[in-house]
Amino acid sequence: MKSIVIIPAYNEEKSIVKTVNDIKENAKGFDYVIVNDCSTDRTLEICKENNLCVLNLPINLGIGGAVQTGYLYAYKNGYDYAVQFDGDGQHDAKFLGEMRDYMESHDVDLLIGSRFIEKEGFQSSGLRRFGIKYFSHLIKLLTGVRITDPTSGMRMANRSVMEIYANCYPKDYPEPESAVAILNVGKKIEEYPVVMREREEGVSSISPIRSVYYMIKVTLAILVEALRR
């Protein structure tokens, strides 16, 4: 089974090598691909210097477009499993093998790494947890499926989901919306307990000012997604 880790990277010069080393050491049997989303720092140069596998986007597409590029690459190159993995050191590569084993032995199309099943490790700030709970309830209400960590950026897809995402993936703040999108076409989502760290470098793409936009946009996106059924 061919598996690949998709690492979207925007200005991750300080942590990208560490992230790749983590994958090489702790996720045996996984290939990886970095998607450099037109970083303004030396991310691309560092990738090239260290001979890392990198897809270089000529213009900045945002997190959604970057992740989608990874899915496109994975799908075109015949990978059976593709997993999204943050380049800023929040995610832990040792869970990847377990997640793949779980997918192989269960009938799951998308497996989301959730912080909130065993409630270990970094649990995010109170306000963010509230937002996450809100989305979790909204998704439950609209689809009947309970996802404890709908904003988690650590998620493993099989080929059928990869194909859908390669064609169509939300542009910004894509996680909750993209989960609902595949639930609507009858795909199966499950969660797997993982532990996440607090980010080491870089800042979250969701600043306080943007969080209002985030809540409104993602809510509407989920509602529209539900209308598409």
């Binding site: 270089n56 986007l57 213009i59 597409l61 477009g65 989608q68 075109k76």
Partner: peptide, 9 residues
């Protein structure tokens, strides 16, 4: 741009 990135690689 995605096609460009894939081709470049």
């Amino acid at each position: 741009s995605q096609a460009v990135a894939l081709n470049e690689e």
